[in-house]
Design a protein around this nucleic acid. Structure first.
Lengths: 355, 355
DNA sequence: AGAGGGTATCGAATCGATTCGATCGAACCG
DNA sequence: CGGTTCGATCGAATCGATTCGATACCCTCT
């Protein structure tokens, strides 16, 4: 109608809606938010005015300033989304987290910790942050968020002050698997580990690498195994994927000298890769080589094996993190949660072959 | 020191920093933002004051209100993150998007379109939105975002006004695959399609389902095939996964009457599932059954086959979307982009077996 | 009819920063 | 030596909504 008068598309504000409806901005606000006493007639007048002006509702930026809340939960992810989401456990956790925090408002903000990402750690308008599968400079990040007064939840990380811990019995679970192999009679056992640090390079598992590692989950799982097989050698994979498992598996199984009779892979995807490696080398699983994984990924269709593994409640971990976030935002003091994994006896382990 | 006077942890503000430094808030702001002329001495005084108060930098909520920008890009995802991230194409696109928009500031906000998600569509403080792999009520969502004055980019969707389209030659690519099979001599070809709508139920591919479908990509790929095989029957999968491909594959191959000599799966994951189904039924690929996929997922280690497929530049699609977002936010008028997929002749197709 | 109670509405302060225009000095030039 | 210009700093308005306390009004009870 009077488009000619409008210089450009100036979005209507609550104030302009109020003016058109002939009420004060405060009343208009009440009419929109639903809280507070507003007569039905007034509310309708306001809504009608809003419709006429094509008003889309209160500006979330202004709301979040005034309320001190944005409704956004940050999720700190390692550098490449590709790597993080290749691991079904991360996706499952994210799913549980999204599920539980869905009511909060806006959604999940993916924050990557790469180079310029430092900016997003400082600038992201988040109410709380969940640290997930993180490694690099975790302490530095935590310090920044703490300074900003942002609630923190960490899934599987070293315990830290003011950070709600959601943990998994990685060490005990790994020990269970190692015991299982030990009970079957295995002595020569090799590891295929998750990445030990941000470098993410494939290579032999050395004490130096372990000492310098920042990968909490990988370390705990190594420790659990070494309680049973103290000096077990191994390979570090560069990611939790079938490809990496294949490569690391070939390396572990092709080593000169005595070949291991069992391989403990730190994730099911890695384990599938190791199975492929065994197949390529003409080894039968489990007759010639026993293989165990970790996580309990559903592998139907990927591998015609029933993998012996520890099943972990990944979605539940995400849910617990979500509940923790909500509790923290409500000013409560939630207690840390620790989940346990469950042994799944598959068909990929057997007594070692006779010498 | 004077902690006793502090009632609670009142976060310091730029104003308090300015007061301590003995300058005006405007000067303090200039000192922080780096823009504008500030003497080195003053800047240092301000930074020292900030350090003393443990000031974490300007509040992003206030910044985004004042600037009218939050630095956040929204990504609208179908209901369950689990389903969306199971498809490597979505992850790849997200990766490219994150890569390209990393400089913008805060990050990617995942917006799920489920029930209460409607709230997040209205409340999310985003500068722009990328619609990706979407289906349900797309028009309604677009209307809301448009009303809110938010820049829109859609990857593989029906063209819409004011929405920058990033497209893929799904129809032509599918036609290429169909031609390839036709040239080999196939006549009885079956489809295994991506989900056709938000319902995501598995079932026979009916004209009714096609008519009611909101799945642009799936529809385009069906159209491409039908240009070569007009009446090709098929099954709809409930997701793009190996499991679903297996189930749909079994259904397609077990149908009474004449079994197809080739299956066109609408994604590589589905194709792997169909291969598994063929194996279960004792069919050799490609001697007894030809199978093609779509996407060009790296399948090393998952399947010992070199799948015949169309390779699409998924990461590049995400990148293009990111560049589009940036251009739109700069007030430019970027042109729609259309990517082409490339035929990859694998080893899963052959002439049909003699009758 | 006046006091009391409850409801609908309004005013004004506030959230925390950014930014435009004004001001104040000092250096520079003729 | 006075006028000009440039650079640093400051004041005040502004972004768009929320919210507390105050006000005006109407109804009821005695």
């Amino acid at each position: 109608m009077d488009d000619t008068a409008t210089p450009a598309r100036a979005r209507p504000t609550l104030a302009s809606v109020a003016a058109l409806a002939g009420v004060s901005p405060s009343t208009a606000s009440l009419a929109f938010s639903g809280s507070g006493p507003v007569s039905a007639a007034t509310r309708e007048r306001v809504l009608a005015a809003a419709a006429e002006l094509d008003y889309a509702g209160p500006d979330p930026r202004a709301q979040s300033l005034r309320r001190g809340r944005s409704g956004i939960i940050g999720v700190v992810i390692e550098d490449r989304l590709r790597d993080a989401f290749r691991d079904p456990m991360n996706v499952a956790m994210l799913d549980g987290l999204a599920d539980e925090t869905g009511s909060l408002g806006a959604g999940l903000l993916l924050i990557t910790e790469n180079g310029e990402g430092a900016a997003s750690i400082r600038n992201a308008p988040v109410d709380a942050v969940v640290l997930i599968g993180c490694s690099t400079s975790l302490a530095a990040q935590v310090a920044i968020f703490r300074q900003r007064g942002i609630a923190l939840v960490a899934i599987e990380a070293e315990p830290m002050d003011d950070v709600l811990a959601i943990d998994l019995d990685n060490r005990q679970g790994s020990r269970t698997l190692a015991r299982h192999l030990s009970d079957l009679g295995h002595h020569r056992v090799a590891l295929v580990t998750l990445p030990l640090d941000a470098g993410r390079s494939r290579g032999p598992l050395t004490e130096t690498a372990i000492g310098a590692s920042t990968g909490y989950t990988a370390l705990e799982r190594i420790r659990g195994v070494r309680e049973v097989f103290p000096g077990a050698p191994g390979m570090m994979a560069a990611a939790s994927s079938i490809d990496e498992g294949l490569a690391a598996g070939l390396a572990v199984l092709s080593e000169p000298g005595s070949r291991p009779t069992a391989v403990i892979a730190q994730s099911d995807l890695l384990a599938v890769g190791v199975i492929r490696a065994a197949e390529q080398l003409g080894l039968r699983v489990p007759q010639d080589l026993s293989i165990v994984g970790f996580d309990g990924v559903k592998l139907d269709g990927i591998a015609p094996y029933d993998l012996t593994t520890m099943v972990q409640p990944a979605v539940e971990k995400g849910r617990a993190a979500g509940r923790g976030v909500i509790a923290l935002l409500n000013g409560e003091h939630p207690l840390p949660v620790s989940f346990v994994s469950r042994f799944h006896p598959g068909t990929t382990t057997a007594p070692p072959p006779a010498e």
